[in-house]
């Protein structure tokens, strides 16, 4: 699927989402503290979930909705697990 098929609005939405991923990745790499990185990972998880839902629509294939749901569940469990582990190492 090319940018032309997406149309102006679709392409704008996609670019905004990609920019969001880039910014969140920047915070993930930059830190400086571990909780900062977890915040970035958490936000990345939500962006990716939304991206997978968007992908289901763009590719016209509902299977990606299941992928999004499973991804959201795993991302949430991961974030909570890391946060709980940080708490114990105070």
């Amino acid at each position: 699927m090319s940018m032309a098929q997406l149309g102006i609005l679709g392409a704008t939405g996609l670019l905004l989402m990609l920019a969001a991923v880039a910014l969140a990745l920047w915070r993930l790499l930059l830190g400086p503290s571990t909780p900062d990185r977890v915040v970035a990972a958490d936000t990345l998880g939500v962006i990716t979930t939304a991206g997978l839902v968007w992908l289901a629509s763009a590719l016209d294939n509902g299977i990606y909705l299941d992928v999004a749901l499973v991804y959201a569940a795993l991302a949430f469990i991961g974030v909570v697990a890391i946060a709980r582990a940080l708490e114990r190492h105070e």
Binding site: T12, L23, R27, T43
Partner: peptide, 11 residues
Amino acid sequence: GLFLFLGALGI
């Protein structure tokens, strides 16, 4: 997409 972007910009 705009709000996802703003959220990422915020962090």
